[in-house]
Computed example of a mutant assay.
Amino acid sequence: MRSRPEDHPAPAHVAVRPLMLEDRAALEPGAAAVVGRFFAAVARRSERIHAPSAACFEEAAASEATFRTLLRALARYAPQTSTASAREVSRAWYG
């Protein structure tokens, strides 16, 4: 059974979670979970959503597919979140 976005803890940024729940029918499988893990990592590391480190992306996504899901979800639901440091993670996947 596919988990529902509301089944995940609510670490997502307050502006992001409602957008994702509003669009729940169109969410990619795993998007809510990976976005939740990402924002939990940002909070745990006391980083700003406007400048998260590569470590937040690495912590949230253990596979290349999950990493890509995270990037697509952030672009759609959290465009205010910088993905510049994700380039380091991309280089690790693609060399």
Results as ranks from 00 to 15, higher is better:
1 M>G: 14
1 M>A: 12
3 S>F: 11
4 R>C: 11
4 R>E: 15
6 E>P: 05
7 D>V: 00
7 D>W: 12
8 H>S: 09
9 P>E: 11
10 A>V: 08
10 A>F: 05
10 A>L: 03
11 P>S: 11
11 P>D: 08
13 H>L: 08
13 H>A: 11
14 V>D: 15
14 V>G: 09
16 V>D: 02
18 P>Y: 02
19 L>E: 12
19 L>S: 10
21 L>D: 05
22 E>S: 12
23 D>G: 07
24 R>S: 11
27 L>A: 04
27 L>P: 01
27 L>G: 00
28 E>F: 05
29 P>L: 14
31 A>L: 04
32 A>P: 08
33 A>H: 13
33 A>P: 06
33 A>G: 12
34 V>D: 02
34 V>A: 00
34 V>I: 11
35 V>D: 02
35 V>M: 10
36 G>P: 01
38 F>E: 01
39 F>L: 05
40 A>D: 09
43 A>N: 02
44 R>Q: 15
45 R>K: 12
50 H>Q: 12
51 A>G: 12
51 A>F: 10
51 A>E: 14
52 P>C: 03
54 A>T: 03
55 A>S: 09
56 C>S: 14
56 C>R: 01
58 E>R: 12
59 E>L: 08
60 A>V: 05
61 A>Y: 06
63 S>P: 00
63 S>V: 04
64 E>N: 08
65 A>Y: 09
66 T>Q: 11
67 F>R: 02
68 R>E: 15
70 L>T: 01
70 L>F: 06
71 L>P: 00
72 R>K: 11
73 A>G: 03
73 A>F: 03
73 A>L: 02
75 A>L: 06
77 Y>M: 00
77 Y>A: 00
78 A>K: 01
79 P>C: 09
80 Q>M: 14
82 S>D: 08
82 S>N: 09
83 T>M: 04
84 A>V: 14
84 A>E: 15
86 A>N: 02
86 A>Q: 04
88 E>L: 15
90 S>R: 13
91 R>W: 12
